[in-house]
Design a protein around this nucleic acid. Structure first.
Lengths: 187, 187
DNA sequence: GTCTATAAACGGATAGAC
DNA sequence: GTCTATCCGTTTATAGAC
């Protein structure tokens, strides 16, 4: 049972609050109450909300991308997609949250520029990885799609993000496998 | 050139602001500035923010669903999907907005219950309509998908919502046709 | 209907004591 | 590092004059 520093606790709760309520839906007050410190202590670690959220995005992004890159590329492409969908879907089980970057993408018009950039980078990394898997799936004959792998990957990633949104909207019924399934070639 | 009442102007601007910035991203003050009245005048028409947003959702929903139902069901299913995608995509051109209900779905954890209900109703109506079109497409042989029409319709609607999100994120490049295309059977 | 005035809580943020 | 105290603008909302 590791003891977290205040800084780590703040960052953790910030990530959860963003996933649940968005950039404009939480405050330093909320965090202070959750961690059990005063708001001024949070300002000590993160001078402005922009600093806090930027670090929250980077932390989230690093972890999520690392998990994605850890998927064994020697597996069949459809199996890789299945794993990807599962790790994506863990967000639903853990506290009815959606993807932190999906949430921020919705609020993009209200975000500091550095944060917006980080969100775009996360989307792009996912789309690039998916394109690689789709190309592999086409070669193996395990997946079927129209157009280029890049086009199909963008559509697929959008479907994952939207599916997470809809799953939470209808109270946690996981619809992500429906998405991965839609490209699979039926036996 | 019809002259809009103050009430109508408020409702119009509220819809735009929600689509651009979300429920937690705009204030009575923003609206007052846009319409050229004081905030107290807005409270006269809409006592609380909940009243305002609920009516904004209902107005938006009625218009969007009416447009959807107006799509000629005697057309080929893939043509119907194309029209659906186009009317969906009009949001991007008109001021870099996404679907009002897609935005609110992201903020669902912060919404008054009546608003949340209206958002769910909108999603459901779209999914039901899409399922009907997909069933037709399967019968005609113009569309191909795995699983039941209902399952595929949920995945497809998620893809449209997510695609809108991503299109705006990357500055208005319309990716919605990529989604509609993904189900089309290649000639 | 629209305004002025005002309330009360909240928002992000800082100075300075300990 | 964490706190108290405080600043100042914002947000939602109401009372009451015109």
């Amino acid at each position: 049972m590791e003891t977290q520093t205040v800084r780590e606790q703040v960052l953790d709760h910030a990530q959860t609050l963003i996933k649940q309520r968005g950039y404009n839906g939480f405050s330093y007050r909320d965090l202070a109450k959750l961690v059990g410190v005063k708001t001024s202590s949070i300002h000590y670690y993160f001078p402005g909300k922009e600093d806090l959220v930027l670090e929250a995005v980077n932390t989230y992004s690093s972890a999520a991308l690392a998990e994605m890159y850890a998927i064994d590329s020697s597996l069949c492409a459809d199996k890789q997609l299945e794993r990807y969908a599962r790790s994506f879907g863990r967000l639903l089980v853990e506290g009815n949250t959606i993807c932190l970057c999906g949430m921020l993408a919705a609020e993009i018009g209200t975000l500091p520029e550095h944060v917006a950039l980080a969100v775009r980078g996360f989307f792009n990394a996912n789309e690039v990885w998916l394109a690689k898997v789709l190309a592999q799936g086409a070669q193996e004959g395990s997946l079927r799609f129209n157009g280029s792998p890049e086009r199909a990957a963008r559509a697929l990633y959008a479907a994952f993000q939207g599916s997470l949104l809809a799953s939470r909207l209808f109270q946690g019924k996981d619809r992500l496998n429906e998405v991965a399934l839609s490209l699979k070639i039926q036996p």
